[in-house]
Design a protein around this nucleic acid. Structure first.
Length: 882
RNA sequence: AGUCCCCUAGCUCAGUUGGUUAGAGCGCUACCUUGACACGGUAGAGGUCAGCGGUUCGAGUCCGCUGGGGACUACCA
């Protein structure tokens, strides 16, 4: 990696991200770095944003997803990929309509006062405001998305794709219109799909009601949690084999209040004879199972609850117009008065409500549009099973299969105003036309046509997002040809069914290819105690607040280092911890730059053989880190990659290497030539570290790097480091590990024996051969500096009374002045020895065990033997320290 | 009810195909304002890896059971 640097200026004393983050982003955008280059030589990498709803501000979950996307995008871009990240927003049908509706309510208006056209105009105004706000927030995060390609699901281009898909699926018989039982939200007054229903466990009253058997004094007792639906009962069902009711099958019961005669039917599917009384009331118009039972027995469907959640005329004059829950009370009162009320018990069951508004769902018969799902699901299942698409973490695949293998047809029509209006045209003679272009008149009978008023489920357009945003259905669209299929999809697991599954289905159906190869599902951001964040709990963290407080880089790094695919516990203290790391990077760079000259050139020209062991060591460690970061990122282990960087930069570069070059840089040791080499290596390590860190911390790395003055105009278009075998140096690592351990041992003994940092000792090292002896002589200045010694002597006599130890295979002795040893110190020393003795005993036993020697791999036996020898030697030394 | 996941230091978590002395961050203790950083440095305390049983020369890691927690899907009159 040849590179040139000309130090431009020093860093500010303090790290103050607010001073440069926005400026850098503007520079990147102005330079066009977010837009892919037109270079056919480069492999491409493309990814689409999970389009945020235009309902409002982004929350911490958005910050997470977009940070993870940005890390991959920046990593790929620096790694030479022609990278496209498509940004955009979703019109979010119900959610957005609700919000604008609510605003109108505050003004004392309703959408009906405005009318459809005016209302939709209002929503567009809202959208313009919020799409901008969302972009601003992503900008603050440092998202390297290509804003010249920003998309919106209701844009003409995407709307055309939506219409094309609708028409095609209709023509292929996969979209149909039918009167069927759907999930109805009485508050939003629209049908919703199965996935939009959220189930919550609740304890309700299970009420027994006695239905008198017609022309008899017997009565059948049913049990229900929804007494008001009895008004819509059109049968009572028992199990065909239930002896208790054999004689009543085929007879009639008299439905109380309504005073209708309804049949007693036998149904083995609906009725579990062991539950309750074994008798079930059947309300085909308001319950899924009853609906299907009704179809089996050809029962009338009596709709007693209307679209507004109020009782209909069919419920009887006394009930018409009454809210469904009011009606329940009234029914119970009347039944009680008639003595037809039985036992009332608690029953814990699941109740479905609309995820967007919380209203209890009313299963309702309704004329709606559906997508036949099975022909779409089959290939989508196959794509994941065959590995064409991989899902990470893999455990989600089971959930995916489970759902896909059992999905029902998808209700796609919504009784809303905000969304893609269904391109179906009806004429008074009952003909329906579905075409790409609006028909002037009915093609069959030339009668005037009117367009369907329903709009499509928001997720219908989202399902096309990876290709509609790239220009599809125009097969020749340049972006489609270059960037489709996309490479990866990063999103929350909560929209696996809503979005991911449907994109796979639609992508396969319409482009013949999986819309992406890899899916990474990130976890939920929770608070530090693992609790879900919610406004009511007051534990919500607003990403923008965090950016304002500590900068985008600290937030991004905190999110990344916790992103393993599981839920992420996030708290202020955690973010603080990683903002300290950003601060550390700033200060370490500042130190390095204080000692780098302005005329450094082409550090790659250093002859590696001329480097000292210390320098070969840090380059070797850096190389290992480089290798690990690339590897971890390639399999979605953001946490591993971030951890590797954290420990390399702080634990090795700052804590050891910088301390080790200080004597040379500050002129306390070595000559001018040595100083030059040290500077170049320092620069090289800093440069590579910044590049490695850049995808995680784009701002701080750029700010420092620009001041370092590299040849590339920006770190974000500089090459990402890759591991180079030439930098590996196991021997340097072995020796430096020993040096570090010796320093730590001296410090440890100093502290344990109650000496102060000012007390200096003499250290004696026994080297095994001349080469090692020379090495320790060369680094003696380092040991003296970092371990605070008076001198280091090689292979000398061990003075009587010196503290002895064996460190990484090297016997050492520390000459300590006389000092009274406290009982605590003795106790500690004894415990240390005891621990080693225990371990040695276990090893001794293991190494005479023939089974172990026979079965264990040679490598394992060898390390055990080596450890045994070392422990024996070390114990010998330690026992002399009294 | 089914499927999946989790239980490792005070807290939150990492521990790849079973193999040296189980790690990190935060928190805690003691000492240190040493020329980049007190958002710092040095040293340290703290773990019967939920429990029981099994497989194995060897289990935090594999299998079974029990207990506790969570997620998703389906359904319950």
């Amino acid at each position: 990696m040849p590179f040139l640097f000309a130090m431009k200026e020093e860093l500010e004393k303090r790290y103050e991200p607010e001073k440069f983050e926005s400026r850098l982003y503007e520079q990147w955008e102005a330079a066009g770095y977010f837009t892919p280059v037109d270079d056919p030589e480069r492999p491409k990498f493309s990814i689409v944003i999970p389009p945020p709803n235009v309902t409002g501000r982004l929350h911490i979950g958005h910050a997470l997803v977009n940070t993870l996307i940005d890390i991959v995008a920046r990593w790929k871009r620096m790694s030479g990929f022609n990278t496209l990240w498509v940004p955009g927003t979703d019109h979010a049908g119900i959610a957005t309509q609700m919000i604008v509706d609510r605003e109108l309510t505050r003004q004392g208006l309703s959408r009906f006062d405005l009318g459809r056209e005016k209302f939709v105009e209002k929503v567009w105004e809202w959208k313009e405001r919020h799409a901008t706000e969302i972009k601003d927030q992503l900008v603050r995060l440092g998202a390297s998305a290509d804003w010249t390609r920003e998309q919106f699901t209701l844009d003409p281009k995407l709307s055309r794709a939506v219409r094309y898909v609708f028409v095609k699926l209709y023509e292929d018989g996969l979209i149909y219109r039918d009167r069927a039982l759907v999930n109805w939200c009485p508050f939003c007054q629209t049908a919703i799909s199965d996935v939009e229903v959220e189930y919550e466990e609740r304890t309700d009253k299970l009420t027994q009601i006695h239905y008198p058997v017609a022309d008899s004094d017997r009565r059948l007792t049913v049990a229900t949690t929804r007494p008001e639906t009895m008004l819509g009962d059109t049968a009572v069902a028992v199990h065909p084999d239930d002896e208790r009711y054999q004689d009543l099958i085929g007879k009639k019961v008299l439905l109380p209040i309504a005073n209708r005669r309804i049949p007693v039917i036998a149904d083995a599917v609906l009725v579990d004879p062991a539950f309750g009384t074994g008798v079930v009331k059947v309300t085909p118009a308001h319950d899924r199972n009853d609906y299907e039972t009704g179809l089996r027995h050809d029962l009338p469907q009596l709709q007693v609850i209307g679209e507004d959640g109020k009782m209909t005329a069919a419920a009887g004059a006394d009930f018409a117009g009454l809210d469904r829950f009011e009606a329940r009370k009234k029914v119970l009162g009347l039944l009680e008065a008639q003595g037809l009320l039985g036992k009332i018990e608690d029953l814990t069951h699941n109740v479905g409500s609309h995820g967007k508004c919380g209203t209890t769902i009313e299963p309702m018969l309704s004329l709606q549009w559906f997508v036949k799902i099975e022909p779409l699901a089959k290939p989508a299942i196959e794509a994941v099973r065959s590995g064409t698409i991989t899902i990470t973490p893999q455990s989600w695949e089971a959930t995916y299969f489970n759902w896909m293998e059992n999905v029902h047809d998808w209700t796609i029509s919504r009784q809303l105003w905000w969304g893609h209006r269904i391109p179906a045209f009806h004429c008074p003679n009952g003909h329906t036309t579905v075409t790409m272009d609006d028909p002037a008149a009915c093609p069959e009978c030339s009668a005037p046509v009117t367009q369907e008023t329903d709009v499509l489920d928001t997720w219908f357009s989202s399902a096309l997002w990876p290709f509609s945003t790239l220009g599809w259905p125009d097969e020749n669209a340049a972006d489609l040809k270059t960037f489709y299929p996309t490479d990866a999809l990063i999103t929350g697991f909560d929209i696996l069914f809503f979005w991911v599954a449907r994109m796979i289905m639609m992508g396969l159906r319409f482009t013949g290819r999986a819309p992406f190869e890899q899916v990474f599902l990130n976890g939920l951001v929770r608070d530090e105690q693992g609790q879900k964040m919610s406004k009511t709990k007051g534990n919500v963290i607003d990403p923008l607040d965090v950016v304002n407080e500590v900068g985008a880089d600290a937030l991004r790094f905190t999110l990344a280092i916790n992103a393993s695919g599981r839920d992420i516990p996030l708290g202020r203290s955690r973010i603080q911890g990683y903002s300290a790391f950003v601060n550390k990077i700033w200060n370490a760079s500042r130190f390095a730059m204080m000692h780098l000259d302005t005329d450094l050139r082409d550090a790659s020209q250093i002859d590696r053989d001329e480097l000292r062991t210390v320098e070969r060591w840090i380059l070797s460690r850096l190389n290992t880190a480089t290798n690990e970061v690339n590897k971890s990122l390639s399999h979605w282990r953001y946490d591993e990659a971030a951890n590797t960087l954290y420990h390399f930069f702080w634990g090795e570069f700052c804590d050891w290497y910088i301390e080790m070059v200080k004597p040379v840089l500050l002129g306390r040791h070595g000559d001018e030539a040595a100083r030059e080499k040290a500077k170049r290596v320092l620069l090289e390590v800093l440069d590579r570290s910044l590049r490695l860190l850049h995808p995680f911390m784009p701002f701080v790395t750029e700010e420092i790097w620009l001041k370092l003055g590299g040849v590339e105009p920006s770190i974000m278009v500089a090459p990402y480091p890759i591991a180079e075998q030439i930098l590996e140096d196991p021997e340097a690592e072995r020796l430096m590990t020993a040096v570090k351990a010796m320093i730590t041992t001296v410090r440890n003994v100093r502290a344990e024996r109650g000496f102060t940092p000012k007390d200096r000792f003499r250290l004696t090292i026994q080297a095994q051969n001349g080469r090692e002896a020379n090495f320790f002589r060369d680094v003696a200045y380092l040991l003296i500096d970092l371990a605070r010694l008076t001198e280091v002597s090689l292979n000398g006599e061990v003075p009587a009374g010196a503290y002895q130890d064996l460190v990484e295979g090297f016997p050492i002795a520390i000459e300590l002045p006389e000092k009274v040893v406290t009982p605590e110190q003795l106790e500690r020393a004894r415990r240390d020895i005891e621990k080693s003795e225990k371990e040695l005993a276990a090893l001794d036993a293991k190494l005479v065990n023939e089974q172990f020697l026979k079965n264990a791999p040679a490598q394992v036996v060898q390390t055990a033997q080596a450890r045994q020898a070392e422990l024996r030697a070390r114990l010998g030394k330690l026992q002399q320290n009294q």
